[in-house]
Amino acid sequence: MVNLFHIRASVVLALAALGISSCQSNTATLPIYGQREPVEKIVDGKTITDTLYHTIPAFKFLNQDSIYITDKNYDNKVYIANFFFTHCPSICPTMNRNLLKVYEQYKDSDQVYFLSHSIDFKYDQPHVLKEYAHKLGVSNDHWNFVTGSKADIYGIANQYLVYTAEDKNAPGGYDHQGYLVLIDKQKRIRGAYDGTNDEQVAKLQKELAILLQEK
């Protein structure tokens, strides 16, 4: 009798576990990164606490076609941002080789966009970026390569939580991290993946698909 009870209990537990895990895979959501602060607001006469998440602030940069690109171009869009420079001898080729795979998967989709910031504000003028984009194999305007003042580019890198610096000891003269940063429709950071690591890039592809399910 006791035995039977045990068996039953474990069957119920197993079923419950199954239910939870399948439920998770349906409603899996990505974390939201960065600082957050609680704010109180009044809805229908009642005070409720809401959370303010870190968002990418307004920006304005020149792209490879010498057109100004702003945060408005990315309103209501999911996009992937990174930082690179065209003559970078170290991590950038691998990072953009990997980002190109994701671009090729989504380039005809109206849901996913790409934004690469050059941290070499001296050399990477729009025509240099244009040639780079063409040689990389970017064939439409869903992937912008942008340049701006040093303060603006390095400032926005901080907002994406990516480290960048001018460093004459680093290969090519600039030091930076090779993160591919996933931004949601409300401009919140939902993931950061090492663009030089195949497993991390596969994770990005998986999580991007999850993010696209969000309303």
Binding site: S90, P93, N96, R97, L100, H134, K135, L136
Partner: peptide, 16 residues
Amino acid sequence: CKNCHGEKGEGLGLLY
């Protein structure tokens, strides 16, 4: 070399 020329020497577009 791998960064530019790729793991299998496949290159990258018209860049490398």
